[in-house]
Design a protein around this nucleic acid. Structure first.
Lengths: 230, 230
DNA sequence: CTCTGACTTTGCTGCACCGCAAATAACCGG
DNA sequence: CCGGTTATTTGCGGTGCAGCAAAGTCAGAG
């Protein structure tokens, strides 16, 4: 077993503005959950029974279409809520969440949502602020998918990922979790073949470096400039 | 001058669950606003000074990219809020709103937002429910843009528009406001040429009818089936 | 250490769709 | 009713990118 570090959790965005006693009450209702890499936290179109706070690791949220095509909606990092279907007035999860690495989360039963939102308005407000931010992101993605060519979309995804999860390394900034060419393709509406071709071309030009499931951005500014020509 | 029909307004989604006296207080703070067809309600990246409730007409919400490409994010019909930048924690409008026909709206000064949200939790809740719904729509659009071919995207837009604004006519259901080929292209990430070709092809097959700025869906089911093959 | 399965690279072919151009066609103000 | 503007149609060539196929590479299990 282990004990949760409440002082770390208190600093996470969903709990900003909450008092320490209030936080304790909230955490009391949650149970810790370990998710092995590749395991699902929840699955698309199944009954939403819980919502989650990711404490450690990385989770990808994937939508699958009727004909089996996959689109990665987002990567969730530590400190973010996922599976808040109830807060959005849904009864089922709109997507599947899969751990990209071994991860740790807190899980609240769904019924806890309304109670917490009522008792702690700051918690509800933080959540809706996050929903607003995600809506804006989705809108920007719509614009990009509707107007930008593949190379630009892939470049922007790489830059967004290093901004959110990047780790400094010897050669540049590396994306903070394993990600395949197929994953990048599923984020940008293209194929793994095209992503592979782009990455090798960019590697020749010195913008990125990559190995199996690892991508490092060497020179983000020049990469941006390269795809930025109108 | 004219007087607002409060009993009609009381039935609109943003005010669901509010008492009549409460509604009167809320409406007290708004001023009516006429917008001529083609006129902007607000413009992208300008200071958000007000939020609006559309009472009559149709407004299109457009994002313009740095290199001048346009994407229509949505059409707003009577009864819906627009320009709620403040509620989303923004200080500027993320898009431009343009009246597709002569329209009528109510405008609240931005400062009213926080007051109303505090005094009337039902109003705030209704708004956040709507934001959630729009986020989901945006997600579905991302999936479609990332996976579906142009004909399917255009067909789905037509069907969505007749569902939201359709009027029965002699031949089928007509989209409830003037919309050009270019507009449809800007909603689906294609060009007016491609939209034109699709519409004429579908007209030959008896799925739709169209004239300048008017589109009628004759047989939505067969149109769906036509583009639905995997 | 080796085998096996997962991931990646790379060439080739085809096509969906864009971009340009130019000809109608419909509406609108005077 | 007419001239000018705006919207639509249609042809043609080019291309970005998908799809298929096959070889190469790496990681981890046993």
């Amino acid at each position: 077993m282990y004990t949760l570090d409440r002082s770390l959790i208190a600093g996470l965005p969903p709990f900003s503005g909450l008092s320490r006693p209030d936080l304790d009450v909230i955490l009391e209702k949650a149970r810790p959950l370990r998710i092995a890499a590749g395991q699902a936290v929840f699955e698309q179109d199944t009954e939403a029974h819980s919502f989650f706070l990711l404490l450690d690791g990385h989770v990808r949220v994937v939508k699958t279409t009727a004909d089996g095509q996959q689109v990665i909606m987002r990567y969730i990092s530590a400190g973010q809520l996922i599976g808040i279907a109830t807060a959005l007035g849904r009864t089922t999860y709109p997507a599947t969440a899969i751990a990209a690495v071994d991860s740790l989360a807190l899980a609240w039963p769904n019924e806890a949502w309304h109670e917490l939102a009522r008792l702690y308005p700051a918690f509800a407000a933080n959540t809706y602020k996050m929903v607003s931010a995600r809506m804006e992101e989705a809108h920007e993605r719509v614009v990009e998918l509707a107007t930008a060519l593949v190379d630009r979309r892939v470049a922007h995804v790489l830059l967004r990922l290093i901004e959110q999860t990047g780790r400094r390394t010897e050669y540049g900034i590396e994306i903070g979790f394993p990600i395949s060419r197929q994953d990048i393709a599923d984020m940008t509406g293209t194929t793994l073949h095209t992503v592979s071709r782009l990455l090798t071309a960019w590697e020749h030009q010195g913008f990125v470096r990559s190995t199996r499931k690892r991508v490092t951005v060497v020179d983000g500014a020049r990469l941006l400039d390269h795809v930025g020509r109108v």
